[in-house]
């Protein structure tokens, strides 16, 4: 008899727990992906870019660095012709700013990139620590 009452209590507790968990209902946090400043369409289709942009950039890097083929379409520099976020001073923010185009999603997904240890993260090539943009 005692065991049965305990079982009932257990299920009641489980039920109350589920009820309470509904109390945390709120809007889900999403990254605030900045609009591109120009153009309707990225260099590839959006769904493809969201999944595979890193492959394009790494492929481009290999082609450029190892084979000397330097094209514009998939270059990192080309990203920033459209994907720039302006700061309060109306200047493009660098990757140090959490509003930077790359950082919005990369922070969200906790994915670190090492592009900007050498490359510039703003159009036109602002001064960074690397020798060449």
């Amino acid at each position: 008899m005692k065991a049965k009452r305990n079982t009932q209590r257990f299920w009641l507790a489980a039920f109350i727990f589920v009820l309470f968990s509904f109390g945390v209902m709120a809007d889900v946090p999403v990254p605030d992906i900045p609009e591109a400043v120009k153009g309707e369409q990225c260099v590839e289709e959006t769904g493809f870019m969201r999944r595979n942009h890193m492959e394009l950039l790494l492929h481009q890097r290999d082609d450029t660095l190892r084979k000397g083929i330097r094209t514009q379409k998939h270059s990192l520099k080309n990203c920033f012709t459209c994907h720039v976020v302006k700061g309060a001073d109306n200047q493009p923010v660098t990757v140090k700013d959490s509003r930077h185009f790359c950082r919005e999603c990369h922070d969200y997904a906790a994915v670190q990139v090492d592009c900007f240890q050498c490359h510039t993260s703003v159009p036109g090539g602002a001064k960074t620590t690397g020798t060449r943009p």
Partner: peptide, 22 residues
């Protein structure tokens, strides 16, 4: 092999936790 839209995936998972289906 075949990447997914990781941001959308995370939004879906968070949606489960916030009871706000994505």
């Amino acid at each position: 092999l075949a990447h997914t839209d990781i941001v959308a995936l995370k939004t879906w998972v968070l949606g489960l936790m916030y009871f706000d289906l994505q």
